[in-house]
């Protein structure tokens, strides 16, 4: 007989090998391709911004939990690490370092820990950090280094506007899409990430690769990303179809800005998205619609972050109204003939 006591716990007596930690690290793995592209395009600055965001998120979580709240420290669960990476991905790579640190403090301290920590926050912490910075430092937050691939394939980065910014500005000054188009990067450039924009959002291909990995690992389901992107395509498509001179094509909308990063990595955040498939679809349609409305008619050229945060606020409501269908509900005792 063994010396260790016999355990008498209730069933089940087996557990799947999935853990929250593994899920977090799977998302981190999924972000690696986009990160590599970013370092290739923007160079050391991308690396530095990401490292600072990660380090400060971890440190703030450690400090606040240990010294302020005096609770258990949870920095090894992968969640703060992920917030750091996602925050960095939503920042320009040339943002002053101290602003990155401020963003991290807002993300971890205000958006996550003050709500009660992992699982209790209503809003996506990384996006709260980003929007806080965008509102507080609008100039620095919209100065994007633009990557240009010259003929020897060496990558230079110069400061400029994003595609969405160029379109918005152009249309505002009465230009038509035909006149604006030459200034925009080509579709291939957008796919591979040689365009202006936040650190992690430019390479559609790298992000899609990561997204596929998450789908394969069943960390996310298709409902949110596919619905967000489909809604955007349909909405921008309608406007583009009616007046292609004053509205950009759906392809440009999907490939530029934070659409793909948002759809696959920000909107799918487990904690802040709905908990049923029906709810996810409603939530995603909301994000798609709000994003397009902001992009086409709002003051900002980009609206993914705002759209996700707005829909985050509706998640508790969505969870209340879109419940899973209970087995046997609304079924009368009757024999269905075969």
């Amino acid at each position: 007989m063994s010396e260790q006591p016999i355990i008498v716990s209730a069933s089940p007596h087996v557990h799947s090998d999935r853990t929250s930690k593994k899920i977090m690290y799977d998302v981190v793995i999924a972000l690696i391709p986009a990160f590599l592209v970013s370092v290739y395009v923007f160079g050391a600055s991308a690396f530095i911004v990401t490292s600072v965001a990660i380090a400060s998120c971890l440190l703030f979580e450690y400090g606040i939990q240990k010294y302020l709240f005096k609770t258990a420290v949870t920095i090894t669960d992968g969640s703060a690490l992920l917030t750091g990476i996602l925050l960095a991905f939503n920042l320009p790579s040339n943002l002053p370092i101290w602003m990155v640190i401020v963003g991290s403090l807002v993300a971890i301290g205000i958006a996550k820990l003050s709500f009660g920590g992992l699982g209790f926050n209503i809003f996506n912490p990384a996006l709260v950090g980003r929007v806080f910075l965008l509102v507080s430092f609008p100039v620095q937050m919209t100065m994007w280094p633009t990557a240009i691939v010259n003929n020897t394939n060496v990558v230079d980065a110069v400061t400029g506007a994003t595609s969405l910014g160029l379109i918005k500005e152009g249309l505002l000054f009465g230009k038509t899409m035909t006149e604006i188009s030459p200034q925009l990067p080509s579709t291939t450039q957008m796919l591979f990430g040689f365009t202006g924009g936040s650190l992690g959002e430019m390479s559609a291909l790298a992000l899609l690769l990561g997204g596929l990995y998450l789908l394969y690992r069943k960390v996310i389901s298709w409902h949110i990303p596919v619905t967000v992107l489909a809604t955007m395509v349909v909405m921008t498509g309608i406007f583009w179809f009616i007046d292609p001179e004053h509205y950009a094509s759906p392809l440009i909308h999907i490939l530029s800005g934070g659409a793909i990063l948002g759809a696959f990595f920000m909107a799918t955040d487990l904690v802040t998205s709905p908990m049923t498939k029906k709810g996810m679809v409603i939530f995603a349609i909301g994000i798609g619609v709000i994003t397009v409305v902001i992009r086409l008619f709002g003051a900002y050229p980009e609206g993914v972050s705002f759209a996700i945060l707005i829909m985050n606020a509706f998640v508790p409501l969505i969870n209340t109204y879109f419940k899973p269908r209970r087995f046997g509900a609304k079924i009368k005792a009757k024999i269905v003939s075969l």
Binding site: I7, S9, H15, R18, T19, S20, I23, D77, S79, G117, L118, G119, F120, L270, V271, T272, S273, M275, T276, K323, P324, R325, R326, F327, A329
Partner: peptide, 23 residues
């Protein structure tokens, strides 16, 4: 032995696997 319980990360796994459609 069971794993140590952690915060619910609202991943909905439990909702998806419940054969009775519960939360």
């Amino acid at each position: 032995s069971r794993g140590e319980p952690k915060n619910c990360i609202r991943c909905s796994e439990c909702v998806f696997v419940c054969p009775m459609g519960l939360e």
